[in-house]
Structures are given as C-alpha cells and as structure tokens.
Nucleic acid binder design. Structure first.
Lengths: 344, 344
DNA sequence: AACGCCTATTGAAACTTTTCAAAAGTCCCC
DNA sequence: GGGGACTTTTGAAAAGTTTCAATAGGCGTT
C-alpha cells in the first residue's frame, strides 16, 4: 500500500479504519474524539511511523510554526547568546527557528529576508546592518511581524529590544572615575554605529558631570568591534606620550577589550595597575580572560527571549502595540579594574 | 481582488493575462517562455509584490530546500564555526538552514529531530550527544540524509566528517616533548567522550614512543570541556607535590586550556616558563588570550562545509556512497608554549 | 415509536504550487 | 493553402493537511 512513500494521514486513516478528518482531529483537537478511536488512531500512527507533513499543514492552515533570527555577526559570541535566548522562547512556544547570519553585509541580509519571506515565517527577529534600510520597511508593509534586536528604529513602526547604551557608557566610565582614574580612553568605532555613539555620549556625560576635563577622556577610534582592532588600539595607546597616556580604557565591546588586554599584557603592562580595562557586553570569555575583565553587562539571553515574546505577541495578538523595550545594563567588576575582585 | 491576502500565482496570472502554468514556467523554466510574456509576467510579479509560497512549492515538488544542523553545545564557539561552514555551503546551494542546539541533552536532541522530520528537511547534519543513540538509526531508516559531524559512527550506516583525534593527541604531546618537557599533564574528560579517549590515546602513544616514562604523562580528568573545569584542573595541578608537578599541560579543548591559563596566571605562574599549555580546536579566542594559546587546530569551517556537501550528495546523487571523511589536525604554536611565538 | 439532543464521525473543499499531456500558434516550404 | 515541425501556452490533476457543515449514532423523554 505504501510502497516506500512516507505515510500520510490517508494511510493512517485507512489503517485505523476511520476517515481522514478523524485522524486530523486526533492531532489537533483530541478532546472531540472518543478515547477508543483516539487510541486506535494513535496506534496506527506509530505502527506506520507517521510524521505530519509540516508544509501541508502550513499551506492549509495558513500559519507557519517558524521564527527566524538574522544575526549581525557570527564571530561575536554576544549574538549567539541572544540567539540562545530566542531559541529558548521558541522552544517554549513549540516553534522552529531559522538562524541566519548577515555578517554585517546588507546584501546577505536581504537575501536572507527574501528567503524567510518565501518560507512565510511567523516572525522575524533581526539585528540589522542598517536599521534604516528600506528592505526592513518592506517587511512591515507586508505585515510580517518583526522585532529589531539590540538596535532601535524610528519609534512606532515596529517593536525593538535594546539596552540603554547611554547609561552603559555612564556606568563604565563612572566606575573608572570612582577608582580615581584621571585620564581615560574610550576605545570604539566606527561611529556610524549608533551604539558606539551612544556609549561614547554616556561616557562623556558622566565624565564631565563629575567635573573632569573633557580633554582627559580620549577617544581612540577603531574600524570595527573586533579583537584585532583592540590590539591595534593598544598599540596606539602605548604610542602616546607618557603625560597624555590614559591609565584606564573603556572599550565599546568585549572583543575590543580582550584585544587591548592581550596587547597590553604582551607589552609588559600590568592590568589593572598600569592600565585598567572595562569592556562591554560581558560575554562569557570576558570572565575567562587571564585577567578577568570588568564589563558592562547586557542581559543577552534576556534580550533574545523578550524579543521573541514581542514578535509572538505581534503575530498572535490582534491588538498588539509596538513597544520599544529597553533593558538596563549593569557593571560587573572584575580584576581588570580592581586589584582584588570579589566576583570572578 | 486581493483584499489583503498576499498574492498567489493565480493573481499574477490574472494580472499578466496568462495562465497560471505560464507563471510557474517563468519561475522554474524561464527558457521555455517567450521573452515578451516572461517580461509581462515579471512585471506583474513585482507590481503585486508576489513572493513564492515555499510550503506549497515543497508540498507539490516533494522536496524541501532546507538543511539542518543540530549542534551539541552552543556555548562552545567551535560549533558555531562549524555551523558557519555549513551555512556557507547551504548558501551556495541556495538552501535555508535550521540551526538547533541540543545542549548536550539527548531529549532536546530528539525533540529537534522530530521537528526537523516534520519539516521534511532535505538533510540533517548533527553532532550527536551519543553517536549510538537509536533515534539516529530512525533517521537512516526513514531515508533522511544524515551526516555525523565531529564524531564517528559504526562505519557504513551513514557519512561522517571528523578529525583524526589520535593524531591530534600525538601532535600536541609531541610538540611539548620536543620542547623538552619531561612531565606532562593531559587535561580532559569525561572519558565517555570518544574524542577525549582518542586524544589521550594519541598522547600516550607518542609519549611512550619517544621513550618517556608513562607515569610522567599525568591524566587529570575533568567532568566537562569547559572553562570552569579548566580552572579546577589548574587548582588540582597546583596542589600536586612539586616533584610530581608537570611543567606542561595538554588540554582536550581550548575552553579547558583557557580556564587553566586563567587559573595559572592568577596563581602567579608564568606561562610558558612555569607551565606550558596546549589547547585543542584553535577557536578564535585561543589566539586572543593574554598569552596566545598554542593549539591543535581543527579545520572547523571546512568540517562544516564538507559535511554539508556530503549530505547534499546523499540527497541528490542516487548512487551515493557513505564516506567517513577525516581531516588532519595541525599544530599552531603560540606563546603559551614557546617564548617568542612566530605566529600570533 | 417518535422526537430531540448530544457526541462522534465523515466527506468535500480549500490552501498554493508544479507538472505534463494536450492544444494552439507560428513559420516555412512545396 | 495545406502540411509538417517547431515553439509557446493552457488546463487540469496532484501533493497532504485542516476546516466545517452535514450526517450518523446513541440515549433518554414523552
């Protein structure tokens, strides 16, 4: 009867001696079918090894059971932690998850979005290369639920989940100021990234509000938020004349901080004695560094989880309102700034 | 006409004044349709904003355009690099990719596989919790192309892609022996992991073949391959009586090595002078550590890419033969073993 | 025995695409 | 102007599921 094909509801129905509508009921509304037939159908299913065909289900029901996350940079563990949070939420809602990686390239992002549209995913979470890109409007125009993760967009066009980067900047520099540093470097870039700008802004705000000379907060621009750029920033730092040289550095993310840390230690500096370092994100490797890294923590998993919940709300709740969720970052002090770190 | 619905081929056909078979031809066999109509149809498509419904395509065509990777441990960057390789290959073949994470738990793995079966993915790549688990047989029984990544399975039941772990073990310890170390620790576990066993085996083989006393290769078992376990191994190492204490450690992966490195430096040891450290995998953070880590490199991306190619061959080539692809690891020497590292 | 009321089951339509045999068009040549 | 050989287009069937109105069956009441 089956000759090789994978069995369908029809085969199950035949085997159980019921109509195919009943089989569907067993799967989708088990409470309406009598215990006796339900059991019979279930036995037939497992005997035949029936597996529901999701494409057919989706086609008919008009709704898919899939979410997607388009991440910005697969080499940064931060985004994998966000993805992990999304996956947990998807799991709870019994949804599958596509994970794509735009690698910071707008064209790849567009290719991915196009494919996801074809898949009729129920919602898209994205950390976009450019939050203002027109292909994102395209999504909203089509009515695909979308949530911007770790970025913000012109307010009410869609939901977003992010962290207060200005506050993050304040926290980081405030910590260094409290430790008595009088000359501090801000390491980060490119400043086309909104986050870098905001973290810098927060840093400057707090620095000046504490009565420090603006010139003593030295901006060391980088081309990207990578370990290599962190190293290169370290070299530039070392090249500064001693009297201009900062005693502490606040980095726009942990990768930079790790690169800077590596370069500094390699050059014979003691951290934190000669140079205190603060990172941003608090990825796992921050705590695992030779000198455990003080970092401004973002609730990475929580970010993903919240984003997934928002997208699901938009997908299922008819009077959904777009929200801009913003989390508070917090300082995690470790040995890269304080001699005897309490926490590891 | 459309009132809100997303347009279908039927709508496109109506708008272009052709039959719906022709629209399908424009998408799938453009060469059979005349330039004039093709153009007309294409215009209609873009005016209506038509996006092909992949579920329907898949249902009718019987073949999906999706691959899946079930990774073992999302907290280990190694697997993300493998996933990245897979994604590149999938991209080349114009396929979408599901990425799942079993988090080393067999039950989650099973849940994922079940869902993937429902999705009728074209092939599954997996780094299984247990390569002998019966639910993997289930897949082959159902005829779903499957490739085991970074593990091996009873030969000819399916393809696999892995790295020669015995050789990796040899390489790592050989390097340390060449540097003159006479007492070496092997850090790794649990030994239920085939890889750990094989790396240890290689380590022992080469150690003895070089004429060293087996007792001077000290096995420091760990409960998992994590940074935390690496730290704890470091503490145990430090607790050994000086005359038994190794001058070098070979770790079964980089996370262990990073943890060990951190603990050692924190305890005031100089690396490599007091303790030389070799890791395994060569994840990005190995090179980024304060003391850049010598590591036995696995071609991570290549592993993923090759696996994807195998699964595609199995999916499309009728006389496909199962293969056990094995890559050669290679040593990347850095400052954690040699005073002046040539490479960074 | 006829009726109404439940609960349980059925059958057909619908979702969107692809495929393929058949029909229609076009062109050229005798 | 009729026939042959193409090229292009059409129309209907099919894929596996869900939905829903309609039917059947069972049971208690009059």
């Amino acid at each position: 009867m089956l000759n090789g094909r994978t069995p369908s509801v029809k085969d199950v129905a035949a085997a159980a001696g019921v109509s195919l509508g009943t089989v569907s009921n067993v799967m989708n509304r088990p409470e309406v079918v009598s215990a006796r037939t339900r059991e019979r159908v279930e036995r037939a299913m497992s005997e035949l090894g029936f597996v529901r065909n999701e494409s057919a289900r989706q086609l008919r029901a008009g709704t898919s059971r899939t979410l997607a996350y388009v991440m910005l940079d697969g080499t940064n563990p931060f985004f994998h932690d966000v993805a992990q949070g999304i996956e947990l939420a998807a799991e709870d809602a019994d949804l599958s998850l596509f994970i794509c990686n735009s690698n910071s390239r707008a064209t790849r992002e567009e290719v991915h979005l196009d494919r996801l549209l074809q898949q009729r995913v129920q919602g898209i979470l994205i950390t976009p290369v450019d939050p203002a890109a027109p292909h994102l409007d395209e999504l909203t125009r089509r009515g695909v639920p979308m949530v911007i993760v770790d970025r913000v967009r012109n307010a009410d066009s869609c939901c977003s989940v992010s962290v207060d980067d200005v506050l993050g900047g304040r926290i980081g520099v405030e910590h260094l100021a409290e430790l008595g540093h009088e000359r501090v470097a801000f390491v980060g870039g490119p400043d086309s990234l909104g986050q870098v700008r905001e973290r810098l802004q927060g840093a400057r705000e707090v620095w000046e509000s504490l009565g420090h000379d603006p010139d003593n907060l030295i901006y060391l621009p980088t081309e990207a938020l990578t370990v290599a750029e962190g190293r290169s920033a370290g070299e530039r730092l070392a090249g500064l004349p001693a009297r201009r040289r900062p005693t502490a550095a606040f980095c726009a993310n942990d990768l930079l901080a790790l690169g800077l840390l590596q370069q500094s230690i390699g050059a014979g500096l003691r951290v934190p004695d000669d140079l205190a370092i603060v990172g941003f994100d608090d990825i796992e490797f921050a705590a695992a560094a030779a000198v455990p890294l003080t970092s401004v923590r973002q609730p990475r998993q929580e970010l993903g989880r919240a984003a997934a919940q928002l997208v699901l709300d938009e997908a299922t709740n008819p009077n959904h309102n777009h929200q801009q969720l913003q989390f508070q970052p917090e300082l995690v002090a470790r040995a890269s700034t304080v001699r005897r770190a309490r926490s590891l």
